[in-house]
Each structure stands twice: as C-alpha cells, then as structure tokens.
Amino acid sequence: MHAAGTVKRLIDPVVFERGIVVTSAAQANALPVAEYTMAALFLGAKQTFRRSRAYTGGGFPPGGGPGLLGSTVGIIGASRVGRLVLERLHHLDVNVLLADPYVNMDEANALGAVLTDVDDLCARSDLISLHAPALPETHHLIDARRLALMPPGAVLINTARGSLVDTEALVEACTAGRITALLDVTDPEPLPTGHPLLTLDNVFLTPHLAGAEGREVQRLGEFATAEIARFLRGDPLQGQIHLDHLARIA
C-alpha cells in the first residue's frame, strides 16, 4: 500500500508476478489536483493573473476575460484527476470536450463530454486542461502545431507532467500573446533562473503544489488505512494497480 500517488517508479513488474497486491492512494491525491484545476479554470477564464499584474502596475487594465459561462473546456486525459474535473464541470454551464484514446463515445457521454481527438479539441476549446500521463507517446503532446491550433486568448492549464508541453513552443506562443498558460508543472522542473516563462505576464506558475499538502495529506492516510481494512475483509480495493496499468499511469 503506497500512501501517496503514483507507484510507477517504485514497483518492478516482478512484484505482480509474485502475486503481491499493489494499491495506492492516488485517488485521494487526485482530489486536490482537481480542485486546483477548477480554480485555475475560473481564474484563467477571467484572465485574472495577467490583469492582476497590470493592475499592480497602476490603474485598471483594459479589456476583461470572457469568464467561464458558455465556454468550451477541453480535457485531455480521463485520468483520475481528469474524471474528477469532468464531474465538476457537469454542474456548470460549459461545453466539454474530451480527448483520450482509452475512452469510447459512450463512456465520454456518461462523463458529460463529447469525445474528439487532440487536434480538434485544441482548435475548439477556450480552455484546455491536461490530465495525461508522461509516456513516450505523450511527450510534447502540446507542440508548436497544436499551440497554433488554439484560438487567440485560449488558456492552457497543466497540472499533469511538464513533458506534455513543448516548453520552447509554449514560450513562443505566450510571448506572442496568443494564449495564457497556468502551469503547476514545467519541463525542466524547476525552470532555470531567468527563464522567459518566469517573467511573462500571461503565464502563471506554481511549484508543483496542486497535489495533497498540509491538512490535505490526512486524506492519503485515511485512504491507505481504509484500503488495508478493505483488503483484510476481502472487499474490492479502490486503488488497486494491475500490471497493465504501469505502462500508462502517470
């Protein structure tokens, strides 16, 4: 029982061959990440961080953000976090797109989203939130071409893994003022001193803090002890990891 998030770099496949049951508290850790993402969506839709910086420079900045109402939100990855975000978006007046190769149309509809591919999602979304794992096939998933597909004023949120985004391409897009980026993860992490993303008004950075911190860590311990109790009773586990999960979990 791993009383935290991913087990990807901790578990060798031989563990499963020996018949050892593996489970983690990744589901509990997903909740604060989803909450962070929702906050980022609301604040990003109002262009809060760019306008705040302009305001502290003196006076009210011209132009406002469109807000979240009626917007199109694109979710890339129906992961644990992605599904929690989709669940929360279901209660808002927004249009939701989903891109995930492991989800079919019926599953997407049940999640309250329209299934599409990444290119179409980028082209149609006002706000895009990344919830995919770091895999060879997701490296630089958001590259210069896909950044160019995003409509002017689009907001990109990344609470997943920094390697999902081509950093150099993102710098170019943000420097040009085409999009806004809210990043809890970067590539590299941390960014070196003087990196352009650290100074741009339309980029808001946090130091990989979306996951459980402070009082939130209690949830991880509670999940772990409850999971052990389920195992001892012979009940279904809520965080069990299977061998075939290793290749595609974060």
Rank of each mutant, 00 (worst) to 15 (best):
A30I: 05
A39G: 11
E227W: 00
S125M: 04
A99F: 01
R219F: 06
L182E: 03
V203P: 00
V165F: 03
L182I: 15
V15Y: 02
T186Q: 07
V7R: 08
A160R: 03
P66V: 13
P192H: 15
R83W: 01
H131S: 09
L92H: 05
I11N: 10
G177F: 13
G67T: 10
A26H: 03
L170P: 00
V217N: 12
F204A: 11
H195T: 09
G221I: 01
L31V: 15
E87Y: 10
D93H: 04
P190V: 14
A113T: 00
N109K: 08
A226K: 04
M105E: 07
P236Q: 07
L130N: 05
T48F: 15
P190Y: 14
R80Q: 13
F204E: 04
G65A: 11
E17T: 13
E107P: 05
S79M: 05
L92V: 12
M105Y: 00
I179Q: 01
A54G: 12
T199D: 14
D235A: 14
R9W: 13
S24D: 09
D126C: 13
V14T: 12
R178S: 02
A144E: 07
G70N: 06
E227Q: 06
R219M: 11
R50V: 12
V155N: 00
A212F: 13
T48D: 01
A123K: 10
L41M: 10
R50M: 14
L182K: 06
L31C: 10
M1R: 10
H140T: 06
A160D: 11
P151I: 14
V85P: 00
L164D: 08
P151Y: 12
A132E: 11
A28L: 05
Q218H: 12
G221D: 07
R18G: 06
L246V: 13
I128A: 05
L68A: 07
T37V: 13
A134S: 15
L89T: 06
T225I: 10
G162E: 12
L135P: 02
N29T: 05
G234M: 11
A160Q: 09
G211H: 08
L86N: 07
L141Y: 02
G239Q: 00
P192I: 15
G65E: 05
A212N: 08
T225A: 14
L84E: 11
H131P: 08
I128E: 04
R233E: 15
T159R: 02
C122S: 02
Y36K: 00
T193E: 14
M150Y: 06
R53G: 13
R124C: 11
P192C: 14
P13K: 09
H139P: 01
H90P: 01
P133H: 07
D100G: 04
D244L: 12
Q238V: 08
A28H: 04
T48P: 01
A132F: 02
A78Q: 04
G234N: 13
N158I: 12
E17K: 15
V81A: 09
E213F: 15
I128D: 01
D201T: 11
A40E: 06
D184P: 04
P61M: 04
L147T: 05
R145M: 03
G234Q: 14
E17W: 09
I11T: 06
I76G: 02
G58Q: 03
V73P: 02
E222T: 07
G5D: 00
L86F: 05
D106G: 09
E222W: 03
P151F: 11
Q240K: 14
D187T: 12
P13I: 12
